[in-house]
Amino acid sequence: MSGSTRDAVMGRLRRAVGANPANDAERRAAVTARLSGAPKGVIPARGQLPPAERLELFIRMATKADATVTRLDAASGIPEEVAAYLRERNLPAAIRMGRDPRLAGLDFSGTALGVTTGPSEGDDLSSLSHAVGAIAETGTLVLTSGPDNPTSLNFLPEYHIVVLDAADVAGDMEAVLARLRQTHGKGTMPRSVNFVTGPSRSADIEQTLLLGAHGPRSLHILVVG
């Protein structure tokens, strides 16, 4: 059924766009060129900055999108910072995270935190993830799915804490996409890539903006380096 529908739809499309044997090679070449060349288009000047200013822009834009940001000199400071963040908000001293080696290597023994690993079932208040990158232009975090950072940790807990290496902050989305392509291979993607800009929100009731719709109410970013 679907096979014949596919043929019918494709036949109509080919007629509508004027495809014929004479222009087939030329049309295919145009499509192949675009898919392999992936031209960049217009890149806003806003994010095209040297590293220090780029990071500043990221922090400014993320804050504008209602995220909170703390800077740390080294990853070793993460456990204490997470503990302090939860303490200040009167949250239980418990955090869930994935198997990311950069997080697994952290020493939580100096804190009272109960650390659990693996995806969330929905009963965790707080989670910790490691971003693969960020976009300064819009203050956006980039997270990818996988056992290292299960996607459920980005959405189910109410408080989401995300570690970001300062060196991974790119100026624009295209730079991040190029990096993803390098990591995963041309034309291949992880199951899910999440671009996250601030905590969850809704304006569905009288166009009044409310934070914490279905995803996290709070997004806290720890910039390391």
Binding site: M61, K64, A65, E137, T138, G139, T140, M189, P190, R191, S192, V193, N194, F195, V196, T197, G198, P199, S200, R201, G215
Partner: peptide, 11 residues
């Protein structure tokens, strides 16, 4: 918005 909160690419 400069960017919506969640832009999700699913493959």
């Amino acid at each position: 918005q400069e960017m919506s909160v969640y832009t999700t690419l699913s493959t």
